[in-house]
Computed example of a mutant assay.
Amino acid sequence: MRVDLFDFDLPPERIALRPVRPRDAARMLVAAGDAPLRDAHVRDLPALLRAGDVLVFNDTRVIPAQLEGTRGQARIGATLHKRLDLRRWQAFVRNAKRLKEGDEIAFPAGVTATAEARHEDGSITLAFHGEEPVEVLLERAGRMPLPPYIAGKRATDEADRSDYQTMFAARDGAVAAPTASLHFTPDLIAALDAAGIGRETLTLHVGAGTFLPVKAEDTAEHKMHAEWGRIDADTAQRLNAARAAGGRIIAAGTTALRLLESAATPDGTIAPFEGDTAIFITPGYRFRAIDGLMTNFHLPKSTLFMLVSALMGLERMQAVYAHAIGEGYRFYSYGDSSLLLP
Rank of each mutant, 00 (worst) to 15 (best):
D103R: 08
L137Y: 02
A141K: 00
P178Q: 01
L137C: 13
S123R: 04
E116N: 10
G122V: 03
L182H: 07
E200T: 14
V111N: 00
A141G: 06
T112I: 00
G122C: 07
D163S: 10
L192M: 13
G110Q: 04
I124N: 05
S123T: 12
V134T: 13
E101V: 15
M167A: 12
A141C: 10
R161E: 02
G130F: 09
I105N: 02
K153W: 02
W89P: 06
L146R: 08
Y164W: 00
R88N: 14
L86E: 15
I189T: 08
G102F: 12
F184W: 01
P178L: 05
V93L: 03
L138Y: 02
L182A: 13
T114R: 10
P145M: 15
L137W: 04
A177W: 00
T125Y: 05
T179A: 09
G142H: 07
Y164D: 03
A109S: 09
E139K: 14
R171M: 12
G142K: 05
P178F: 02
R118C: 05
P108A: 08
D103V: 12
E101F: 11
A191C: 04
G130E: 12
V206P: 02
P108D: 04
L86R: 14
L188E: 00
H183V: 13
R140M: 10
R118F: 02
D187I: 09
A117N: 05
A195I: 05
P108L: 08
V93G: 04
D160I: 11
G152Q: 10
A141M: 01
R161N: 08
L84G: 10
A151Q: 08
A176F: 01
V175L: 08
R118E: 03
A91V: 05
P133S: 11
D163Y: 08
R94L: 07
W89Y: 13
H119V: 06
T125W: 02
P147V: 14
E158T: 12
A190G: 06
I197P: 01
L192Q: 12
A115C: 11
V111K: 00
R161Y: 03
L202I: 02
G130P: 10
E131M: 11
A106S: 14
E131S: 13
Y149N: 15
H183P: 05
E139P: 12
I150V: 15
A174F: 06
I124L: 14
G207Y: 08
